[in-house]
Amino acid sequence: MAQQTWFITGVSSGFGRELTEQLLQRGDKVVGTVRDTGKIKDLVEAYPQTFFARILDVTDVAAIRALIDAVFADIGRVDVVVSNAGYGLFGAAEELSDSEIDTIIATNLTGSIQLFRAVIPHLRAQGGGRIIQLSSYGGQVAFPGNSLYHATKWGIEGFAESVAQEVAAFGIGVTIVEPGGARTEFRYGSAKVANLMPIYDNTPTHAFLKMLDPGNGLAAGDPTRMATRIIESIEIEPAPLRMVLGSQALQSTIDTLKKRIAGFEAQTELAASTDFPPNE
């Protein structure tokens, strides 16, 4: 396979780090963004010719545009863009602060939207490419105590699905990746928790506290295998719109969608009752 060039946001840990390591080991080039280069110093030293670390805070829209323009100008063709930067925020809606809400939306949703907008003109000009958006099976299902995280993932999935249809004519494929629980820092390190209120103790809303505690058992998802499947997906044509990674995530998604469809089908008469009568 010919060497390819990848642009990946958030490569200091989690899926971003795993993807980067596998790609570098197989001989690809990676432009990886971080907020602190100290966390990827080992990669910079080990792969001086193929790994290019760049500083980026995805909440800075101007910085996203400037960096993308510079990367395409300096490196030329970029085959795959991975929108990976993001984090989890847990707590009931009323437990979250305004600042926490603004920051997760700016990071997980607006940052990803602006990355798409910045790279599309370059991918179109070069005649194609692939965009991979890291989401979650939480972009299809919803649990208590995760409202703002779900808001960002449901939002970016709608955006990416629409954009996939807009850019297909230019040879640009879009894939939304929906991992289930995995043994990464997302769950066991970087997850943020609101200032919790005792009123929600012993309710489903605070059940996430058990999930975040590794003492209760680790997630089933293997980030190494998941990253491998993501890398393999770029060889699939046309690009798969969605990839669910993890058997529990897939079953939960299927069960949720079946219930949702049943709920819609039960409204057939209600929906029709709001139409104008025939011939009016």
Rank of each mutant, 00 (worst) to 15 (best):
W6T: 08
V193Q: 10
F52R: 09
K259M: 14
G181Q: 08
W154Q: 03
L123V: 07
L43V: 02
F116M: 05
P204L: 08
S136V: 09
V177W: 04
A266N: 14
E95G: 04
A182F: 15
P121L: 10
L196I: 12
I120M: 14
R260Y: 11
F159A: 04
T103H: 14
A227T: 07
G10R: 03
P277V: 09
A194T: 04
D28Q: 09
D222P: 02
S83V: 15
L148E: 07
P277Q: 03
P223W: 01
P240L: 09
K153E: 06
T107R: 03
T184G: 09
M1W: 03
T50A: 10
G27F: 09
N216W: 07
V174P: 02
L56C: 10
I254S: 06
D69L: 06
R225S: 09
T5D: 00
Q25L: 15
Y149E: 07
G215T: 08
T253H: 05
D98A: 15
P223Y: 03
E178L: 12
V81H: 10
I172M: 06
P277H: 06
L245C: 11
P48K: 03
E100P: 07
R117K: 15
I105W: 06
V71Y: 08
E95N: 03
Y149P: 10
A2C: 00
R77G: 00
P198L: 04
L218G: 13
L115Q: 07
K258Y: 02
T59H: 01
S112G: 15
G181W: 07
V163A: 05
L218C: 01
F170M: 10
Q49F: 06
H150Q: 12
A169E: 12
I120N: 02
A239V: 07
G145A: 12
S13F: 00
E95V: 02
I55Y: 11
